[in-house]
Amino acid sequence: MTTQVNKDLTYIKIGTLEDFRERMGRVIRLNQKEIAVFRTTDGTLYALDNRSPHRRGGPLAEGMVSGHFVLDPLYDWKIALDTGQVQAPDSGLVQTYPLQVEGTDVQLGLTLEQAGQLGLER
């Protein structure tokens, strides 16, 4: 696994640009954890926990993407892709992760703590 350390974040390669289609989320599985990666129409990539903050949970990756928001596929909550903030009238927060693109590689940024929790070596 390619890793790169930058400002206390560990970046790991999760795929290349063509692995992520516009407006169609994709799940990245890191051990037990699932992260949903979205690519918006303007080409921006976002990574969030693949878990709705709705009290009954459920995945996010299958949600419809509109602009820089994803619409929760089970409960239709509107969630901002950049901040993970659930939009009014609902409320909640989804953990987001930084992504960076190097050439065509897409890399996911994790803090050392997060990487440790997921059992990823440096």
Binding site: E22, R23, G57, G58, P59, E62, G63, M64, V65
Partner: peptide
């Protein structure tokens, strides 16, 4: 346009609350 289909029609299966 699959990205404009609700998840069930996109996946050709019914999503349940646990995914």
């Amino acid at each position: 346009e699959k990205d404009s289909r609700f998840v069930n029609e996109r996946m050709n299966a019914n999503i349940q609350k646990d995914g």
